[in-house]
């Protein structure tokens, strides 16, 4: 069965290459390669230059990963259904969970490889001016890849019971609410706007959603703070648990779906 999942993922990857998803990644990679030179032209000084370049570059990677996760997650199954390429595949002796896993693994490979390429570009371009390659940039970018992978799994789940646009909206909603930090809720919703009811709702929703804010460890690399391996391990486990949950839920719904 693992081989069948591999072949389904391969088919998905070939499809994404055909859709030229990698061209978007390459375009962003060029921006990231040129970014430090642009930032440096403001003569901020080496330390400030590094901080601004890392901050901006990582933010760009994070947005890219989220957008890709929503797009790929929502379209992974629905595009097969829409184009009817699903029927000859599911007529094969493959359980539906294996089909879903094949798709999910394909999405993961696209996401992680894109983020890796982009973070390497950012690291190299900063290293060209700062004369120091900061490997933590890649670690932080991989945390974003974990965040995006959870989001992609959620979007695949949403797409099993709703239309692609609705699944996309649900994905965006999950990303925003799940990404709200406790300090944001306390400060902006309670103290600044005096809306404890909204804050309570946000807290309640956040409790049942993945805490995306846990993956945002950009400050560690921007301000050269230490990143504890135990923390990285724990958020990896956390992400895997959420991915597993979403894939299982997707399987439950998809197994009962009339196609």
């Amino acid at each position: 069965m693992i081989l069948k999942i591999y072949y389904l993922s391969k088919l998905y990857l070939l499809e994404q290459i055909r859709r030229q998803v990698h061209l978007v990644t390459l375009f962003l990679a060029v921006i990231l390669l040129m970014l430090p030179a642009y930032v440096n032209s403001f003569s901020l000084g080496l330390s400030a230059f590094e901080r601004v370049a890392k901050d901006f570059g990582l933010t760009l990677i994070s947005f890219y990963a989220v957008a890709m996760a929503i797009f790929l997650g929502v379209t992974a199954v629905s595009s097969d259904l829409e184009r009817r390429t699903l029927y000859p595949l599911l007529a094969r002796p493959i359980p539906r969970w294996a089909y879903l896993m094949g798709k999910f693994v394909g999405v993961l490979v696209v996401l992680v490889s894109s983020v890796l390429v982009l973070s390497c570009c950012l690291m190299l371009s900063i290293a060209a001016l700062a004369k120091f390659a900061d490997g933590q940039l890649i670690v932080v970018a991989l945390c974003y890849a974990l965040e995006a992978s959870v989001l992609a799994a959620a979007c695949i789940f949403f797409s099993t019971f709703s239309s692609p646009p609705l699944a996309g909206v649900l994905g965006v909603f999950l990303y925003f609410v799940g990404g709200l930090s406790q300090s944001f809720i306390s400060f902006f919703l309670v103290e600044d706007r005096e809306s404890p009811a909204v804050a309570m709702l946000a807290r309640g929703l956040k409790m049942v959603m993945p805490h995306f804010d846990l993956f945002r460890v950009k400050n560690a690399v921007v301000y050269t703070l230490p990143l504890e391996p135990a923390y990285l391990l724990s958020i990896t486990g956390y992400a895997l648990a959420w991915m597993l949950l979403f894939v299982l839920l997707a399987e439950r719904v998809f197994a009962r779906k009339d196609l």
């Binding site: 009817r84 000859p88 007529a91």
Partner: peptide
Amino acid sequence: YLPEVAVYH
């Protein structure tokens, strides 16, 4: 199985 509308990659 040959589907009614045979669409492949």
